Amino acid sequence: MSITASPDVARNARPYLYGGEEAAIASALSAGQYNHGAVTEEFEQALAAFLGVPDVVAVASGTAALHVGLLAAGVGPGHEVVVPSFTFCATVQAILAAGARPRFVEVNPDTGCVEPAEVLGALTPDTRAVMPVLYGGRAIDLSPARPALDEQGITVVEDAAQAFGSWQGERRVGATGVVTCFSFGPIKNLTCGLGGAIVPRTPLEANICRRLRGLGIVESAARRAEVTTYTIDGFGMRVQMSPLNAAVGLVQLVHFAEAETRRRALWRAYAAALDGIDGVSLVDADVDRTVPALCAVRVLDGRRDRVFHALLERGIGVAVHYPPNHTQPAFAAWHRPLPVTEHLGGQIMTLPFHQHLTEAAAEHITGELRAALAAETDR
């Protein structure tokens, strides 16, 4: 029988709005430009200033960001992209959309992230890119592998869908010199409703990204309004970010310091409450440098599925992020044995994590987890 729980506790994740988003959307609606416009470009400039980078290219989704980022880096048919199997399927679908194929690698089960040694061990003559996934928002330092990657002409394209605002050393993720792709989906640290962005490495790469997102058209929308023709110089898609979504993102960005503070406090509350509970291991988010996107635990001793369902029955919105991709039917052609990832996939569970939750709620959820584990022990 399900136990009544608060709506916030019952949801694994939930969008958080600060109050100015509706007025921003109304203003963008009244401007009458919904495909691409000045608000989108204002959002791009604001993101670049926040990250401390020269340019940012906004697109329709995080998946589109990965797809465009790979294409701009020259990834295509015949190429391999080294990628962890432990990620959302969108990461892999973006590789396939570029015409390339994934080469799945293991992650560190304590962090959910790839390590430089695993990346280097997976390289083949066909490797054109490495796509580290910043699980839970944690930055990944591949600097030990960079000399070998650079020597072989391999580009790092970061899947930083969960990592907006996080730090790598003294710089924000996105400002570390690699192609970085963000998601601004409904439950991300910063939401646009839907949206994404690419941080390019050079002005040329930025121009390529803009053409790819805009059907391959060379001229800007403003320029096309002044001329009788335009130029299409290659492949492109319609994956621009609408000004309606950008308007939401601008409001969110103004309040991002609050998101950073509240998400870290909630993660620390979970860490404190989980301390000392047998049978559970907290996935390390490196919270001092991370704006956490989730709180993940490993349920040990083969009890994950039973504990998962017990918590759902108690009204706690747990989830699994993520089932390993190399075991999925759609990606069977690229399966390779990954015992660490397969073991992690059978243990991983995420606890409710969003800015509506209080620290007291985290303690309550952890108490229910403790009770579910105790019930399993008594079986």
Score class of each variant (00 low, 15 high):
residue 210 R to D: 10
residue 124 T to Y: 03
residue 125 P to A: 03
residue 255 H to S: 08
residue 264 R to M: 08
residue 221 A to D: 05
residue 376 E to H: 08
residue 307 V to P: 01
residue 353 F to E: 04
residue 177 G to P: 14
residue 95 I to K: 08
residue 74 G to W: 03
residue 64 A to K: 00
residue 71 L to Q: 14
residue 251 V to D: 14
residue 361 A to P: 01
residue 140 I to M: 05
residue 59 V to E: 01
residue 138 R to Q: 05
residue 59 V to L: 13
residue 239 V to E: 07
residue 343 H to S: 11
residue 37 G to E: 00
residue 357 L to S: 09
residue 105 V to E: 08
residue 142 L to Y: 02
residue 179 V to L: 09
residue 115 E to T: 14
residue 308 F to Y: 15
residue 51 L to N: 02
residue 63 T to P: 00
residue 228 T to C: 10
residue 111 T to H: 09
residue 281 S to G: 10
residue 271 A to T: 14
residue 295 C to D: 04
residue 91 T to E: 05
residue 22 E to G: 11
residue 197 A to F: 02
residue 346 G to K: 10
residue 301 D to A: 14
residue 280 V to D: 10
residue 83 V to S: 05
residue 18 Y to S: 06
residue 39 V to P: 04
residue 211 R to D: 05
residue 250 L to C: 13
residue 163 A to T: 06
residue 330 A to Q: 11
residue 124 T to R: 00
residue 36 H to T: 07
residue 238 R to T: 13
residue 287 V to W: 10
residue 374 A to H: 15
residue 230 Y to V: 12
residue 6 S to K: 15
residue 95 I to A: 06
residue 304 R to V: 11
residue 358 T to L: 09
residue 127 T to W: 00
residue 379 R to A: 11
residue 49 A to R: 14
residue 123 L to H: 08
residue 329 P to K: 11
residue 132 P to W: 07
residue 302 G to F: 07
residue 15 P to L: 10
residue 95 I to D: 08
residue 122 A to L: 10
residue 216 G to I: 08
residue 360 A to W: 07
residue 361 A to W: 08
residue 88 F to R: 12
residue 292 P to K: 11
residue 207 N to D: 14
residue 63 T to I: 11
residue 361 A to H: 15
residue 358 T to A: 07
residue 301 D to Q: 14
residue 237 M to L: 13
residue 324 P to Y: 00
residue 363 E to Y: 03
residue 116 P to F: 03
residue 75 V to F: 05
residue 328 Q to M: 15
residue 166 S to H: 00
residue 51 L to K: 03
residue 217 I to W: 02
residue 130 V to M: 07
residue 325 N to D: 07
residue 370 R to I: 01
residue 250 L to Q: 08
residue 289 R to P: 06
residue 153 G to W: 14
residue 202 T to C: 06
residue 177 G to E: 09
residue 99 G to E: 13
residue 208 I to Y: 02
residue 133 V to E: 01
residue 294 L to Y: 10
residue 361 A to M: 13
residue 3 I to W: 15
residue 335 H to M: 04
residue 282 L to P: 09
residue 59 V to G: 04
residue 84 P to H: 06
residue 371 A to R: 14
residue 298 R to I: 15
residue 345 G to R: 09
residue 263 R to H: 04
residue 223 R to L: 02
residue 206 A to Q: 03
residue 219 E to I: 01
residue 189 N to R: 11
residue 320 V to F: 00
residue 149 L to G: 00
residue 190 L to R: 08
residue 9 V to G: 01
residue 349 M to T: 03
residue 366 T to M: 04
residue 174 G to V: 10
residue 93 Q to N: 11
residue 2 S to R: 15
residue 215 L to I: 13
residue 369 L to T: 05
residue 197 A to D: 06
residue 248 V to Y: 09
residue 85 S to M: 03
residue 52 G to Y: 01
residue 47 L to D: 01
residue 320 V to Y: 00
residue 50 F to A: 09
